[in-house]
Design a protein around this nucleic acid. Structure first.
Lengths: 291, 291
DNA sequence: GAGCCGATCGAGAATATCTTTCAGAAAGAC
DNA sequence: GTCTTTCTGAAAGATATTCTCGATCGGCTC
């Protein structure tokens, strides 16, 4: 986030009720910036302007105070600290991840993911690019899609990926995965695929990053996050959530065929299993929630 | 109350959220009166003006909605259905995953994972086994641990894994990942490592499965789930949660060294990035939550 | 019934608040 | 290095809110 706007964010974070008491000009002074920047800040985080932002803040504060009066004391948001005992670590991690998933679900552009799913369904050829950690995600997506009959390939090395991208054409679809959206290799592969005529989909945290610029459709894996770092644990969960949903939308398209194929792969894998100790394996029943 | 003001009061009573959405002029129109009267009305009931009144109304509404939601509508647990519209799919998936994470956190044996972390920290040699989808998780864990200085290898092919397992000995640690706990290859690799003298850790959904029997420590990724199917989307999130926590516990052990190493890998990767468009990259500050 | 008084009201002026525009500065791309 | 793009605050512009003041109305007294 640009620094002047970040200062506004800081002030709001420090004094959540500031927007209620201050005019836009006063708030701007607090943040050592101009009213114009405050307006821009409100826009950036999704409001029409300062007034709407203020209304929302007021409503949140009302909500928070109502909740704080009722028993379940909301623990303050905590960072992970090096000397946390395991119980705290577990709880903090859980809360962080749950919040990340909720944010991701909230921010996800359903139209974008639907159109991505439509393209994937109609694809004659599907490449998935990702390097490093995102390469692992690329593999996960590939293996999942493959199992429901989508002829996907995942490429985690730039040379191989570029070769495949060059072979793309009309009817091809390419998905590039990059947390930061700045990973040169991935951007390169996706751009090459686009140049060859493929429909391109970017999966990234930053909807304004280079990879988003070369993509026809961008799936943001979370709302804007300042200071993203490569080891952020929640990032993977967010990415996987988007991948899950994409997979479900694709599988939905031809539900019966997808479950039949899953059943077949399941049987094939079962032969490599040690027998169960009790009960008989249940018949495959389709894409459902586990209990 | 004078009649014009009473009309204002009526409008507000009928549509409590009206002041949030309407300007003072619009609200005045609704009440068939003038803006001046609305201001007088706000004064009459004790506010400085329309803006303060609006803030208070927003806050009250937030409070009310918080209370009405208070028991966060325990929506009946839903399965994913083939004809769900995307909004429902998103929400159902979110709820499913959140529940899975909560269950996993709840069921996790902290002592077990602490002792696993201790062994990993002291390991001279660390093998991670997993095939299929669990192989992807094995890779994810390996890459994470490697980056904080744990000399880990992941093996996703049984022959290679067996070779490495055979080379294990005292001071070696082996982690086997298998959803079902019945994957013959993974069980085989872990058993071989155990036979060679390695300390063995199993990561599985089923604490009573074959893989758990050959392991010194078993980390259950959730309570026992009958009828596990390979495409269950929540399984990966649960596994990843356990992996995250294991990683954090290991990283905690030597926090400074871990962050220093992460910083180094981060810098190395940065060279492969396209430069950022604005702002300077923040210095690496350790394992913290993202905002 | 006429005249007076105070309460209430709305129109428009005055002010405060918010948004947009614009041009310079800074950062990034090439 | 140059050329873009992005970010920023100042000031203009637009809008929203409040204030002023004269008009209206109902009730009261004479």
């Amino acid at each position: 986030m640009p620094s002047a706007m970040a200062r506004v964010a800081d002030v709001v974070e420090q004094h959540p009720s500031a927007p209620l008491e201050l005019t836009i000009t006063e708030l701007a002074e607090q943040a050592r910036t101009s009213a114009a920047t405050v307006t821009r800040f409100c826009r950036l985080i999704g409001f029409d302007g300062y007034t709407q932002f203020r209304v929302r803040v007021a409503s949140e504060i009302g909500r928070a105070s109502a909740e704080s009066e009722s028993p379940p004391a909301p623990r303050p948001r905590r960072d992970l600290a090096p000397d946390d005992p395991p119980e705290v670590l577990r709880q903090t991690l859980l809360e962080t991840l749950v919040r990340a998933l909720e944010n991701t679900a909230q921010a996800l552009d359903l139209e974008a993911i639907e159109s991505a799913a439509t393209e994937v369904i109609g694809a004659e050829h599907l490449d998935i690019y990702g390097v490093g950690d995102s390469g692992i995600m690329a593999n996960a997506l590939q293996s999942r899609l493959y199992r429901i009959g989508i002829n996907a390939h995942s490429w985690t090395a730039v040379h191989d990926g570029l070769a495949s991208a060059a072979l793309s054409g009309r009817g091809s679809v390419a998905i590039g995965i990059s947390n930061t959206g700045h990973t040169a290799d991935t951007v390169h592969m996706l751009a090459e695929a686009a140049a060859s005529g493929a429909f391109t989909i970017a999966l990234t945290h930053d909807a304004r990053s280079p990879i988003a610029k070369v993509a026809d459709v961008t799936l943001a894996t979370a709302a804007y996050v300042p200071g993203l770092r490569p080891d952020d644990l929640s990032v993977k969960h967010s990415q996987m959530f988007v991948i899950d949903l994409l997979y479900l939308l694709v599988a939905q398209h031809d539900f019966d065929a997808a479950t039949a194929r899953l059943s077949a792969t399941s049987r094939a894998v079962a032969a490599r299993r040690r027998p169960r100790r009790h009960g008989t394996p249940r018949p495959y029943r389709g894409i459902q929630e586990i209990r």
